Amino acid sequence: MTSNEHGLTRRRFAAGMVAALSAGGLARKVRAEVPQPAIDTHAHVFHRGLKLAPGRRYAPDYDAPLALYLQQLDQNGITNGVLVQPSFLGTDNSYLVECLKATNGRLRGIAVVDPAVAADELRALDRAGVAGIRLNLVGQTLPDLTSAEWTALLAQIRALDWQVEIQRNATDLATLAPTLLDQGVKVVLDHFALPDPKLGIDDPGFQAVLKLGATRNVWVKISAPYRNGPNGEAFAKQAYPLLRNAYGVDRLLWGSDWPHTQFESVQSYAKNRKFLDELVTDADERARVLASPRALFRF
């Protein structure tokens, strides 16, 4: 090989190395610019054409369609959301599934099912993007979660690696959650665990809920402070550091509670997102809270 050929080879090698390094740097830059997930873990979608469940406590007189919810996400810098089946729609999860399929993985769902639901239906919900079931027990008779029917359902929930989300006052959650944990399922508690508004963080039920953090299999939604009485925001600011210390940032889940049913006139998506900034003042910690639901909801 002549000296000229050697020189050409060296120049080609050097050019190749520069290209490779540039490509690697570009790849690193692209990876660095991928936005960290910001996940809203609690919202509802519905419209007035849907069949309502018998025995419902409430039904809205307006529409909260998927397109409007996605608009809220986009306007508030939220990358992903979780649709929770509204109680007034009962166990007909068809609109929920329709919305999940329409968004190509941007959203996950929490369904409401009958304890005797068929395994095939649960698997179909799983394929659609459902990640758990909801027990809205406000105003309801408490179910016997140790009965044969419930233990069979919870075994299927465990096999699917789903969660069980509960809305109930803190005193009852303190006994319901351990029953679920004994059956090996992940538990999510709604709306700061709903202590007695008159007692707030001093509610013995709330204090018992704090102890559940040690299980590392319970999560708490820091959502809808207004559902904790007229002083809900002040309570939330007292509760957050206690919950953070008991559960860790990775077990706290922010939710908008959009469209804020029964509080529509005084709440908005932007207001609730802004309150998160007041609640979690450290930007890095807030980013961790917004990203923490990723694994639980399988994004």
Rank of each mutant, 00 (worst) to 15 (best):
T2R: 11
L8T: 13
L8K: 14
L8Y: 11
R12S: 12
A15L: 14
A27N: 09
A27C: 14
R28Y: 15
E33L: 15
D40M: 05
H44D: 11
K51C: 07
Y58N: 10
P60V: 10
D63K: 07
A64C: 10
P65I: 09
L73F: 10
L73Y: 03
Q75R: 15
I78R: 00
I78P: 00
L83D: 01
P86W: 05
S87E: 11
L89W: 03
L89G: 01
D92E: 12
L96V: 04
V97H: 02
T103F: 01
G105Q: 10
V112M: 13
V112I: 15
A119I: 06
A128N: 04
P143Y: 07
W150E: 03
A159R: 12
I166T: 07
N169R: 08
T171G: 11
T171C: 03
T179A: 14
L180I: 12
G184S: 03
G184A: 07
V185W: 00
K186Y: 06
V187Q: 00
L189N: 01
H191T: 10
F192S: 01
A193M: 05
P197I: 04
P197F: 06
K198V: 11
D202I: 00
D203C: 01
Q207E: 12
L210V: 06
L212Q: 04
L212G: 02
A214P: 07
I222S: 01
R227G: 08
E233G: 03
K237E: 13
Y247F: 15
D250T: 15
S256F: 05
F263C: 07
E264F: 11
R273T: 14
L276A: 00
T281V: 14
D282H: 06
A287V: 04
R298F: 07
